[in-house]
């Protein structure tokens, strides 16, 4: 009762980073609330993971193991989760904002008539006073997230419904194992009592790894490189920064013509027009052909060793210097500050 349950995802036989990040955050929350931190893990053979969950502070590990559960399926996974939450009545339940967490958590929240906040960037404990009724609430979960395309930050609470549910993206919270694992307990969930044959009406026919299509237009952050990047290899730095920030990589026409990047990434008059929230232009001089496709970006950061490059004129922040030094520093700084 009244504990915190983290839903644990596995991928390729390993616990997903986002689940370990949530356990790390869960320890802090459980400390503030003086309650237990617990984990739920579902799969075909998942008991091997208990030790690692103990080392991240899970005091109870609920295990649902069944060979039919090798891959995630909405109906049986949600049946198990709903059943556990009904019995254990956690006050908080956290899920990774992955394709699994964002499929499972809303289904569970709907069945329990409890609130859910997606993609939180911060979780805190705080009090609340209802203005109309004057009713006071202690120790609620503040679920903080951007909304309205990132133009506002909203703090969401669920005063009356339990569990208070939230999803969090990978990489938003810090991941830190304990120096000494907790001495936790394992509780086995009898899946055959919970899941029914009709929970398997949706069958997986096949799964395979497939490269994602390039989606520059839809990306809120774009890291674009120009001829000044120098080579296809140097473009890897841009991909690295993009993966850290959850961004897409774009390119100027000169960079595409030089073979540094695919044509699908070309931004400018003869490429795509973009208006992201943040545009980082590295090694781009800033010819009108390019700027016509990006000058409506909400914020522009230019990186160019030439202090007179026209790109600096339209930038909000102009960094004068070598991108081979600057981009690794940006990555390092982001990793230090984002936790």
């Amino acid at each position: 009762m009244d504990n915190i349950i983290i839903y644990i995802e596995t991928e390729g036989g390993k616990i997903s980073d986002v689940s370990l990040e949530l356990l790390t955050k869960g320890r802090t929350l459980a400390g503030e609330l003086s309650c237990k931190l617990e984990a739920l893990i579902i799969g075909s053979s998942v008991e091997q993971h208990t030790q690692e969950l103990f080392s991240y502070g899970a005091e109870t590990v609920y295990i649902a193991q069944d060979k039919r559960l090798e891959h995630y399926l909405t109906l049986p996974y949600s049946a198990i989760t709903i059943d556990l939450f009904k019995k254990e009545r956690p006050q908080i339940a956290l899920f990774g904002a992955t394709s699994i967490g964002r499929d499972l958590a809303p289904r569970v929240s709907s069945a329990l008539v409890s609130g859910l906040t997606a993609d939180c960037t911060s979780l805190e404990i705080g009090d609340h006073k209802e203005v109309k009724s004057g009713k006071e609430y202690r120790n609620l979960l503040y679920q903080i997230r951007p909304a309205f395309g990132g133009n506002i930050i909203a703090t969401i609470i669920n005063p009356d419904c339990r569990p208070q549910m939230a999803t969090v993206r990978e990489g938003v919270m810090k991941k830190e194992p304990l120096k000494t694992p907790v001495k936790g307990v394992v509780k086995v969930i009898e899946t055959k009592d919970i899941i029914k044959p009709e929970d398997f009406v949706v069958e997986i026919i096949e799964r395979h790894i497939e490269e994602r299509k390039i989606d520059i237009k839809g990306s809120p952050i774009i890291i674009a490189g120009g001829f000044g990047v120098g080579s296809k290899e140097n473009f890897n730095l841009l991909y690295e920064l993009a993966s850290v920030l959850g961004a897409e990589v774009g390119a100027s026409r000169a960079a595409v013509d030089a073979g540094f990047a695919e044509g699908a990434r070309q931004i400018g008059q003869t490429g795509i027009t973009v208006r992201p929230k943040l545009y980082i232009a590295a090694g781009i001089s800033g010819q009108i052909q390019h700027t016509a496709g990006m000058d409506q970006s909400a914020m522009i950061i230019s990186i160019n060793s030439d202090p007179n490059a026209p790109i600096h004129q339209i930038a909000d922040y102009a960094i004068i210097g070598d991108m081979n030094e600057i981009i690794p520093r940006m990555i390092k700084s982001y990793k230090l500050n984002s936790k």
Partner: peptide, 14 residues
């Protein structure tokens, strides 16, 4: 609606 908005903060652009 179980969820309530407690606070809204606008992002200030430079």
């Amino acid at each position: 609606s179980p969820t309530k908005v407690k606070k809204i903060e606008n992002i200030v652009f430079q």
